[in-house]
Structure formats: C-alpha cells, structure tokens
Design a binder for these strands. Sequence first.
DNA 1: TTGAGGAGAGAAAACCTTTTCTCACGCTGC
DNA 2: GCAGCGTGAGAAAAGGTTTTCTCTCCTCAA
Lengths: 330, 330
Amino acid sequence: MTIHDVAAAAGVSISTASKALNNTGRMGAETRERVKRIAGEIGFRPNALARGLLSKRSFTIGLLTNDTYGRFTLPVMAGISEALVDHGVSVFLCAIEDDPALGQIHVDAMLDKQVDGIIASGKRLDRRLPVDLSSLPVPVVYAFTEGTPNSVTLRSDDGQGARLAVEWLAKLGRHRIAHITGPEDFFSVRERASAYREVAGDAEPVLYGIWAESWGHEAVGSIWDRPGEKPDAVFCGNDQIARGVVDALRERGVRVPEDVSVVGFDNWEILAAQTRPPLTSIDMGLKELGREAGLTVLALAEGRPVEPGVRKLPCRLVVRQSCGGMSPTE
Amino acid sequence: MTIHDVAAAAGVSISTASKALNNTGRMGAETRERVKRIAGEIGFRPNALARGLLSKRSFTIGLLTNDTYGRFTLPVMAGISEALVDHGVSVFLCAIEDDPALGQIHVDAMLDKQVDGIIASGKRLDRRLPVDLSSLPVPVVYAFTEGTPNSVTLRSDDGQGARLAVEWLAKLGRHRIAHITGPEDFFSVRERASAYREVAGDAEPVLYGIWAESWGHEAVGSIWDRPGEKPDAVFCGNDQIARGVVDALRERGVRVPEDVSVVGFDNWEILAAQTRPPLTSIDMGLKELGREAGLTVLALAEGRPVEPGVRKLPCRLVVRQSCGGMSPTE
DNA sequence: TTGAGGAGAGAAAACCTTTTCTCACGCTGC
DNA sequence: GCAGCGTGAGAAAAGGTTTTCTCTCCTCAA
C-alpha cells in the first residue's frame, strides 16, 4: 500500500495525492476529500523511512542507560514515551551496562538509523555514561546522569526533596531527627545531607553507609544502643534503608509511627507500599523528568532554542503511614 | 558524509563504492581496499533509512509490553537487546499500560517505521495484550504473554520450576513442605501448584492468596497457629511472599533455614538478596527468554521457517541461604 | 588479425515520499 | 478579442543506497 496505490485508486497523480493527504498545495476541495477517503479505505500509511530520508527527521530518538535494574530508567522512559507518543516519536531503548564498547555500538547503530536525538540516563547523578556524546551530529539531553559542560542536563532537586522530608517531620512535631543514608561519595547523598543539616541542625550525626536494608538495621542498632536520648524520627537516604530501619525498630519494640516517624527516599512503590507500615517517601518525579527530557530533545531536534545548563526538577512528598499525623495538604 | 563523498574521494563511481564496501560485485582488489580505507578515514556510515527503503529491512524491532514496573519486561528486554545488537538490530520499547488505544498508536507507529517484527510481552502468562497483533504485515513473537492460536509463543516452564524447588527441598531432607502462593486464577499459580502436588503429595494444603508480603505473613500465621505438626519447608509463589514468610517465621522465633527452609520464585535479585537470610529462589530465565524471542523474530523476519506453538524454556534454581544445606551441584 | 570472452567499472533504475516547477485551461478586464 | 492571471493538477527532482545492466578494454586463442 503505497501512495502510488492511493493515487491510482483516486485517479490522480502521485503529487496530487501527496498534497491532498498532507493538506498542502492547491486543489479542489472534493479532490482532496476523495483522495483522503480512498486513502483511509485502502488503509494507506506513509512509509516513515521514505519520509525520513527526505525530511531528515526520523521521528525516532534513543534512550541510552546503564541502569540495569531499570529502577530509575523505567519511570524516565515512561515519561519520555508519554510525552513523545503524541508527536509520533518512538524510542529506542539501549541498555549499555557499563561497557564503553557496547555503548559505542549502540550509539553508532542509532546514528545510522538517523535518530533525531539522544537522551542519556543512568543510575547516578554524579557519574557519566561510559561513552562520549559530546560531539554527536544530533542533540543530546542528559536526564538523571551527569552531562558534559555545555549540555542540557535535567535532574531532581535532591536538596529540596530532603528539605521537604525534614520539614514534614518537623511539622509533625519531631525534633530529634536522625539521617541514615548511603555512601558519602554519592553527590546526591551529600546534597541531601546538607539540606537535612540546614533544617534539622546538627543535634544528630549523619550516618553514611550503603544502599541496603542491612545498613538500616545496623544503623538503628548503633543509635539505639548508645546511651542518651533517642531520635523521634529518621530520615533515610532511600527506601531500602528505610525498610531496614522500620524493621529494626519494630524488632526492638519501638513503634512506627507512634514513637518514631520514618521517611524514605525514591518512593519505590513496590517496596514502600509493602513495608509495614507503608513508607512515607520522597518521589524524585522521574516520570516528569522523562517527560521534560523528551520535550527538550524534541525542541532541540526541531531547531528550537533551549538554554543549556542544569535544570533541577522538584521532588514530591508522598505520604503513607510511617510518619503518622496529618494529611499532606494541611 | 554519504556514499557520494566516498566515491568522489576515491575517484570512483557510486556503484563501485557501494560494491566495494559491501564486498559484492567484481573489481580490482586494490580499488576495493582503497575505497574501504577512504570510507573509514572520512567516517562514512551508511544511512539506514535509505538502505531500509530499498531492502525492506529496517533492522529495527518493537517490544510491546503492559508491564509497568518492568519487573518481567526488563530482563526480557535485556535478553532481546543482547541477542540482536550483534545483528545490528535496535529495539523500540513501547509501554502500553492496559490501554487499547495507546497500544494501537504504538503498533501503528512501529509499522510506519517498518519494523522487521514485533515481540509482545507482558506481566502475566495467561493474559493477552489489549491490542490485536494477529494479522500484522510483520512477524510477531509472544514472550511471557498469551499469544494467538497459530503464533509463536515463548514462556517459562513454571511446572518444571516448581518441581525444581520442591525436589531441592526434598533432597535437603524436608518432607512437610507447604506451598503459599498467589491468586488461583493465575495460570502459572495453578501450574506451579499442580507440579508441587506431584512431588510433595497432599500432606499440606496449598494456600492461595495475593502477591504480597502481607499474605506471606498471614499465611504463616494461619499455619503455625493451627494445632499439629508444622511444615519444615515452605515453597512460595514468589519472592515477595517468601520475604513475608521469612520475616513472619523470624518473628515467631522459627529459624530459617535451620528449622524451616524457604524457597521463593522469580529470583527478583533486589528483593531476594536483601532478605535475611538471602532467598533461594527459582529464576524463570527471562533473559534467555528474551534472547530466544529476539532470535526467533529475527529468523521470521529473514524468512527462515519457525514452527509455531508454545515453547517452554526451563527455570533454574538459584541457591542462596534460605534453605541451608549443600551447594546445588551435589 | 580477428573474434570471443572476461574483467573492471560506470549508468541508471528502484525504493517511497515530498516539494518545486511547469503546464493547461478558463475567466476577467480592458 | 486578447493579454494576463488564478486555479487545479501533473512532471520531475531530490533524498542515499543497492542492484542490474551496459560498456569498454584487454587478453588469449584460432
């Protein structure tokens, strides 16, 4: 089913058929309608390859990621797809592990296929993908991964997210707020910790560890075993740690949320909702991040100007039951 | 950088350049080498759109899924990508939620882009995607979702997986093996339960519930609170349930694995490894499934014959510490 | 010396669409 | 009655590549 068939069936030339279908050119209204009707009847759909060859636009972009579990990439991907499907753009997903060679293969394959742009994503804000995207013939947007100097980079505002969490705890009347978090060499860990300090002061030390439940357990042990007053709230670096914290507290007979409020980070639905009690958590808004990234790369592909630099998107507090108290709108 | 530039730089015609680069046609060996060298030097890469237009092969396939969390789709995707990247094939990922309209939009977009084939995937073996793929102009392979009657369908062998689990427990000397699993209306639940019955007999009832930790908890409660002898092993319908079971047992002072062995299903790394103790689990081999699906759709796209029907791929036992005992090779 | 045949290379068509250019025709205004 | 113009529609080129066909030499054998 090519445009030839449409033209033949409508008794017009190919050029007329094309113009009719694209609402361009001059022609009689009934001719246009007839061509359109016939195209619909025989189920004509234009070949995107041929169209792309001419227009230099493939309506295709690539998403490059090294996030194997997809915990971060999946929401980003969903946002991108959601934003771009209306524009007829499809997305190549390329998981490149941490392998530079594999990354290069995928980038080359995408360029061969004339993608209109590339979105680079990852599992960590302060690490680069193992492949250089700085001088590609197509626009590149970095989302949730570190970009090159003059690039467009989108990331979550972890400081604001942390502030949100701690202020929420404060609003609930908690004032001895501990912070149990991940490895200090993560930029986002430092950013969250410093926002935490701003709001909570330094009554409690920040406990750095690893991104695991076991660390949440262990940290609760070290805090509750030491003498002196105990915290009445814990702000955790991610939901896994929070889960460990909640479990450890319950095992010690400390009630959550009655005695201690706990806030997580990431709002990893499948974990946060299964914890007992379900975790109040900070959502980084990765889907919105993806949506923005999609629209941005599209803008660049269409030649619209986008000012370079790092753009931080706000986090959101998702209230469940691990803090007790009021609803978030009060 | 087009083949015109290569031809000009090498002082040959376009056709000669093309033939040189593709190792086709007749020509002097040094001419061929010279063209290749120059193409390499100026960084020529053929335009896949133009090539696809002519060859009717876009070296592109689509992966359609309604699995939002990507827990099943992600490993499948990884397998597909891994198998096809060597063949120069890129993959469009289309997440269609459960929306028929969205599904149709994505399918149309992919067909417009002349994909060589489509792989349909999902989150459940016994459900169809909300879009009809039965009479598309491109080959379709179903992976981890129900296919249409005469299609090629790939799925995990859940019966064999369940057998693996129960036999493993038996081999460890466990003989009162309980089965706590998901909703009975899942085909895979029934399949696993019936394999369990075959091996374990019906000393213990099968407990059907929901796919949640809370159900694991609850089920342990109902078993351990009833009078009489207790199980010495629990085979769980998935890792979330297993997690709930392990936690509930620990809370009751029942030791895992000393007193009771626990096996999960899905081998959801991030959960199984964080459980205390880490879960022995059945891996459905979704990556291999993806790989097979990729190679199969490629075969179909190239016109090689593939016999239709349902092909079951074996599950694998992944031993961690929740069963105790020996290593898996003994 | 001539004819056949083969080797090397180029011309051109094809893939499908969009877009620009050209053409024919009928009408209006002088 | 004729120049000019607007309208509707088609011809053709372009985009980058592959492939088939053709052409020109050159060599070798008769």
